[in-house]
Amino acid sequence: MKNLTFSFFILFLLGSHSNAIEIDYCVGDPSLPRGPQGYGCKDSSTLTVDDFIFTGFRGKKSITNIFQNNITTATVIEYPALNGQGISMARLDFGVGGVIPVHSHRTSEIIVVVKGTIIAGFIDTNNTAYYKTLEVGDVMIFPQSMLHFQVNVGRTVATAYVSLNGANPAVQLTPPSLFAGNLPAELASQITLLSRKEVMRMKRLFGTA
């Protein structure tokens, strides 16, 4: 009986740790309900090679926002073929002096610079900042959920590509979270130790005051 129980235990462990899949892919169908594992699958009989291609990174990007950047995302929302694949990408374009402000994801991120010079870094839970000037071809990892940022410190526009280990990594930009939403100025002042005057200046920058 003991041997039989042990055998069932081993089978359970093997089954619970299996990475086997029953289908090759599941191109997301945004018209179907979305659950914790992503979208339901598009009918495989209707798929073509174009369902697996994303062309959104092509061409020159317009840089007009307050941070002087342009972020082109290729998550499952824009690129349904990523559904269930555990990966996504983004193209980052920086104007001169442009930044990707402090932000976080629910995933890890890796960046490679393809044009220009940037400073990239992250801040860990001990409040230690790890940052360095990156040149073309340099790569840096930002651990999962850590606050991180990028700044163009060159004299020309800069471009980088990032990959994240989630099909829908989400992003929370710290400045807009504090000053572009519905958080009252009084509370924003209290939790940031900024004066109400400075908080209102920030809210005006984001058009919420």
Rank of each mutant, 00 (worst) to 15 (best):
L194H: 05
I71C: 02
Y161L: 10
P36G: 07
Y79M: 13
S62T: 15
H103G: 01
Q172V: 13
F206C: 12
F8E: 09
Q85E: 06
N127T: 06
I71E: 09
F179T: 07
T64M: 09
L47Q: 10
E78A: 02
C41L: 05
T117C: 05
L183I: 14
M200N: 10
S195H: 03
L134P: 04
M200W: 02
R91S: 07
P169Y: 07
R204H: 04
A188I: 08
I111G: 08
S88D: 02
E198D: 12
R106Y: 09
V199Q: 04
F94Y: 15
S16I: 15
E109K: 03
A81P: 08
V136R: 12
D138R: 04
P80K: 06
S195I: 05
K132T: 14
H103L: 09
K2C: 00
I63F: 07
M200V: 11
N83R: 00
P101A: 11
Q190C: 11
D29N: 14
T107W: 12
M89Q: 02
P36S: 08
E135M: 03
T133G: 07
N70R: 14
Q68V: 02
I66E: 14
H105L: 07
A160S: 15
L194D: 02
R204E: 10
Y79V: 13
Q172H: 08
L178T: 01
P80I: 06
K203T: 00
G28R: 04
P143D: 06
M1E: 01
T156A: 10
R196Q: 13
R106G: 11
V113Y: 10
A120Y: 07
Y25F: 08
N168W: 09
D24G: 03
S104I: 03
T5Q: 12
A185W: 07
T156M: 06
T133Q: 15
P80M: 00
E186S: 15
N126P: 00
T125F: 04
R196V: 11
R196L: 15
S189Q: 04
G38K: 03
N182T: 13
S16W: 13
V76F: 00
A74M: 14
M140T: 05
V49F: 08
M89H: 01
G86R: 00
S189M: 03
G121M: 06
S7D: 13
G28L: 06
A74P: 07
R196S: 14
D24F: 09
A167N: 13
N19T: 11
G59Q: 14
Q144E: 09
E78N: 03
V139E: 02
V114K: 05
G98H: 11
R34E: 03
P33Q: 09
M202F: 15
G35H: 10
S44I: 14
T174S: 05
P30E: 08
I111Y: 11
M202S: 12
R155W: 10
